[in-house]
């Protein structure tokens, strides 16, 4: 494993993810997530839907597949405009910090073609730049899909952060092979309701 990958998956990477909850804020507000057990099942559901899709695309992007084509495919897998917006905002911010941390032709080319790529695309291309394998890029994307929401739950519900990390440690990572399209109707609903909420702490 390359050190770059560790930096890329560190939640302290200053790429704006701390302000995204991946539907968690709305799920908490609607009472769907209220304790450790409901958190675990939310995260497991997110991992095998949004996480699996992100993992597949990050690994393909890392493997050198055309990012513009992947980006259009991700659009088709993200029916919710709120989720597309959150994914593109996070992708844009990640791409911006990655270009400054790891200047490289690949990242410049990506920024030239897609200034606001879906996050898994930015992550996959950056992973390739730091020397990670497609499989590692996929794992990083899957983790990203659940660590943000988990941290948000710690903040929103005052859950024991150690217990939440134990939940994260026991989740099964999806395989990043192929390009799944697993959807999660409730995540769409939560995202759209969250975007319309006048009172919110997180961007998504």
């Amino acid at each position: 494993m390359t050190p770059g990958l560790l930096l890329l998956t560190d939640s302290r990477l200053p790429a704006g993810s701390h302000a995204h909850s991946g539907g968690m804020e709305q799920a908490v507000k609607e009472g769907l997530v209220h304790d450790l057990a409901s958190l675990e099942s939310f995260l497991a559901g997110r991992l095998r839907t949004a996480g699996a899709v992100a993992a597949g695309f990050a690994s393909q992007a890392c493997a050198g597949h055309d990012p513009v084509e992947l980006d259009a495919e991700l659009d088709a897998r993200t029916a919710s405009p709120a989720q597309r917006e959150a994914a593109r905002t996070q992708g844009r911010l990640l791409l911006r910090v990655a270009r400054r941390i790891w200047p490289s032709p690949a990242l410049e080319e990506l920024a030239g073609r897609l200034p606001s790529p879906h996050h898994p695309i930015a992550l996959g291309v950056t992973a390739a730049v730091v020397g990670a394998t497609p499989r590692e890029a996929g794992a990083a994307a899957a983790y990203h899909a659940v660590t943000g929401p988990a941290t948000a739950a710690v903040r929103l519900l005052g859950l024991d952060p150690v217990a939440v990390h134990r939940v994260l440690a026991t989740l099964d990572l999806p395989s990043p092979d192929g390009l799944p399209a697993a959807s999660a109707p409730l995540l769409d609903l939560l995202a759209e309701r969250h975007r319309r909420s006048p009172v919110r702490l997180f961007v998504s």
């Binding site: 539907g23 799920a27 769907l32 997530v33 409901s38 099942s41 939310f42 995260l43 497991a44 559901g45 997110r46 095998r48 839907t49 949004a50 259009a72 495919e73 659009d75 088709a76 897998r77 029916a79 799944p180 399209a181 697993a182 959807s183 999660a184 109707p185 409730l186 995540l187 939560l190």
Partner: peptide
């Protein structure tokens, strides 16, 4: 061009408040 691609698994795992509730 791809317009919509979705996959949904029903009754295959524990229900999740992220998927169907």
């Amino acid at each position: 061009r791809p317009l919509l691609r979705q996959e949904l698994e029903l009754g295959t795992g524990p229900c999740s408040p992220a998927v169907l509730g």
